[in-house]
Write a protein that binds this DNA or RNA. Structure first.
Lengths: 196, 196, 196, 196
DNA sequence: AATGAATGAGAGTTCATTCAT
DNA sequence: TATGAATGAACTCTCATTCAT
């Protein structure tokens, strides 16, 4: 094996590695994991095919890294967004941040969605992480006494579902924004319910 | 041409066709579209490899048919479930029906999820159909005057998201039931909101 | 896996299989196991590359089969040669048969020699089988009372060594016969020793 | 040109060259020529990959050198062993020396055996050299009048075969010694023959 | 109508060797 | 000089699809 850990790479090596990740993001994001090929990724990165294997042991490995990187970034992004917002606004701000993020990172988002087939464990890991972050936020919000006391996990997954489907419908499929009205409807439902 | 349309098949032919669909459901459902192979499907169906192409023009074609069949069945199942239930219960009954269905048809459900990669258009078509059905139900419920008047499409996707994620979390991942409590939490949120 | 056991093959299949073995024998024999490629073997057999894997699971597998087949044939050939010869002649007849065989089957012989690198266990198995056959012959010869009673295994390997090196020197390297004189010298040594 | 001849190397350069040879001996000896890689050899030698090509023009070249070096050493070792021994003992002493040598130099011995595939000409050269050395010894022994006058080349290859197979059977395969009894049997055969 | 042998393009991966620093 | 990143040809193997029977 000829593969060095990232920490031992030279500056040049790191640069190549990053090029590969960028290229893989694009190719996986547009063609999908299975239709994507190493040749294509290396061509996109303008690098020889063999070079790929100096940096990643397999196609699967670079995919994994992309998912994990995306997971980290997305959670951080949302966390920062809700951190300094008034409690009542926490959900709306979280949704908005999420939508903003997937709009800017369409490919990465697409890659995560593919994990249902590529690696279901990874898929679960991703949503698990996301849910855990959400649960923490819910716990914090609880302290304010503004919200009902409901099972956090069930709530987290429900809310995740709402966000995911709104984002999917308007951003992922249409490449636009989630319309203000749709967000308002969702917030109304989440905060006050649909019963008159 | 070597492929006959379904309508021209003899009784025996129809039987073979059905065997192939059953086999494909199992194989796609357990291994995933890309890892599944035609050999495997025909072996499972106890049929010669070449025979496959007498009934379906390609691997993709049988997949498409499975998704469409699943879509039809699921929508019918939910429709029947909510048809004769009091309006206030419509959402809970719909969720329950959905959960029951995916529990009984894990493989088919899995197959639909895969469409994100296999054929994104098909994926959109599936949710679009589902949403349209939901919208109709929302319109009917509107007549009762019990519910707020909110944009139906936004609401449909929000509710679809909630159901999907609950089902995914507890049935698809854990192979169990969505716990009563989780369903209660979701319903509380949907009907009355999470604010005190 | 799409590979059928030999016993289940149709006539056509058996024919293809035999073509592949013949081709592999030639290619392994001339280029050596590692320099040989599946492409080359299938080209030699005038068969598509993919077809190879319908009959053998790997390059190694067809090699193994060749060695085992060769082993069987060679032992049978020698056995038949010495069977009906007077006891005193048994060794000379065995050597002659061995030389005749490798002359006619240069490629197969070459293939066995390669096992030192390809698969040392197979290599050992081959000589072990050969030695065991030899030992049986020595035991039979013992009954005649013409020979000294010496440890059969040590003797078998010594005799195997003599035969192997003579065959290698004159047949394998030069593509000719082992000269009569060389065989005489070897037999003189084996039967009466080199001391005056 | 980027490769200097051995004679122009500095002291440090010679050291590096020797490290490379030692490493190659180990790697070729344990993994075999084809499974061995330059990366592995340079890693074993704790030297950069590119540096290899400052000292040897190719993988094959370092292999050649190892075989030649081994050949020289083995012949010298045997020569010294038989030099001062009484004539009648010359063969036994030669065998013993050979066995001793391969026991101590298992890797180098293994490397030579591989030449059947790697480079058949080299293989022939090796045995040719060995045989020529043997022939000289036989000529010297002839002078004593103790031995029959037999064709030296045929005899040399016969004896080489005996030694080779005994060593292979007990030392190379089992990693032990050639048992005293086996050596006795071989010597009895060689000196007095197997007929009563 | 059904079979299953055959096809061949294309996949992921390895590694001896070169070359810029 | 020594380094190690980069190269790319070649390899083994898979599989959707075709075709002769």
């Amino acid at each position: 094996m000829t593969l060095k850990p990232e920490s031992e790479l030279t500056k040049k090596g790191l640069h190549t590695r990053r090029k590969l990740l960028k290229a893989a993001e694009k190719v996986f994001g547009t063609k999908g994991y299975f239709e994507a090929s190493i040749v294509e990724i290396t061509q996109e990165a303008k690098i020889a095919q063999g070079t790929f294997y100096k940096y990643f042991p397999s196609k699967k490995a670079i995919y994994d890294e992309l998912v994990q990187q995306m997971s980290r970034e997305l959670r951080l992004f949302i966390k920062q967004a809700i951190e300094n917002s008034p409690h009542a606004d926490v959900h709306r701000r979280g949704f908005e941040a999420f939508f903003e993020w997937i709009k800017e990172n369409r490919n990465l988002y697409s890659i995560v969605l593919q994990a249902v087939i590529v690696d279901n464990d990874l898929y679960q890991w991703y949503y698990d992480k996301l849910a855990k972050g959400y649960i923490k936020a819910l716990q914090a919000a609880d302290q304010t006494g503004e919200f009902k006391s409901l099972n956090h996990e069930a709530l987290a997954y429900s809310l995740l579902g709402v966000g995911q489907f709104l984002g999917m419908r308007w951003i992922y499929w249409e490449g636009e924004e989630v319309p203000q009205e749709a967000l308002d409807v969702a917030m109304e439902m989440v905060l006050h319910g649909i019963l008159k």
